[in-house]
Simulated scan of single mutants.
Amino acid sequence: MYINQDKLHKLRIDKNWSQDQLATIAGLNIRTIQRLEKGGKASNESLRALASAFEVPSSYLLTEEKEALDYPVNVIKRSVINCYDFSGTIAREHFFWFALFIILTLALAKLISLTTGPLLFQITSLVLFLPWLSTSTKRLRDAGLSPWWQLMILVPVAGVILLLYLLTFPTLKTSD
């Protein structure tokens, strides 16, 4: 179930609670509160704890539009728009939709650059660098790894292969 992040944030602000205070009152981990305010998925226990803390029905906190957000086009759009946000996580399947978008975009830019010169490919690469870095950081964090593993890309062949392998790790299971 997905929590309506706007409602959750508004309820918390209306009560003048910090995320830490809400976590204490609801009996949840502060990282859970942070994840839910960024639009994460909530367990039944977390949903009940938040509803109890705010004294609202559980259904009030839920959103129905999250399914539409999981379409590949929307995942790609969110990854590009939120390229300056290096916090949070991204699911493995969402990451690979975004990676496919990057590969296809760069391939198309390279194909066009064969006739027009290398400038288009270079600009496209620069524009996509920050979203790729941000999304890779979130993916490594989701797999329970340090984002510093991205520095392996600096090692010519083995580093790229190792980084791609690390990006395929499953989501780290955390308890709410």
Rank of each mutant, 00 (worst) to 15 (best):
G27Y: 08
G27N: 06
L28D: 03
N29M: 06
I33M: 07
I33W: 01
Q34D: 06
R35C: 12
R35P: 00
L36T: 07
K38W: 03
K38F: 07
K38I: 03
K41H: 08
A42E: 04
A42F: 09
S43E: 13
N44G: 15
E45I: 12
E45S: 12
L47V: 11
L47K: 04
R48Y: 05
R48H: 10
L50T: 02
A53L: 05
A53N: 06
A53I: 03
A53K: 01
V56Y: 09
S58Q: 15
S58V: 09
L61T: 03
L62Y: 07
L62T: 06
T63C: 12
E64F: 13
E67R: 09
A68T: 10
A68S: 14
L69T: 14
D70W: 13
P72C: 07
P72L: 05
V73E: 13
N74I: 06
N74F: 04
I76W: 00
I76E: 00
K77G: 00
K77E: 01
R78T: 08
S79D: 09
V80K: 00
V80Q: 02
I81D: 12
N82Q: 13
N82F: 01
C83T: 07
C83I: 02
C83H: 13
Y84D: 11
Y84F: 13
Y84S: 15
D85S: 14
F86H: 08
F86I: 15
S87Y: 07
S87F: 11
S87E: 15
S87R: 07
S87G: 09
G88S: 11
G88W: 02
T89Q: 08
T89D: 04
I90Y: 01
A91E: 13
A91H: 05
R92F: 10
H94I: 02
H94D: 15
H94E: 15
F95E: 01
F96T: 05
W97G: 00
W97K: 05
F98W: 05
F98C: 01
L100F: 12
F101K: 00
F101P: 00
I103K: 15
L104R: 03
T105K: 04
L108W: 10
A109K: 01
K110L: 13
K110S: 14
K110R: 11
L111Q: 08
L111V: 11
L114C: 10
L114Y: 14
G117F: 08
G117P: 12
P118R: 12
P118V: 05
L119Y: 10
L119I: 15
L119N: 08
L120E: 03
Q122Y: 11
I123Y: 06
T124P: 09
T124R: 00
T124Q: 04
S125T: 13
S125G: 15
S125I: 04
L126V: 12
V127N: 10
V127S: 08
L128F: 04
L128V: 10
P131I: 03
L133T: 11
S134K: 01
S134L: 01
T135A: 06
T135F: 01
T135D: 02
S136N: 12
S136I: 02
S136L: 02
S136T: 12
T137I: 03
R139Q: 11
R139N: 05
L140T: 00
L140R: 03
R141D: 03
A143H: 10
A143N: 09
L145V: 07
L145K: 13
L145E: 06
L145N: 04
S146Q: 08
S146T: 14
P147L: 02
P147M: 05
P147R: 07
W149T: 03
W149K: 06
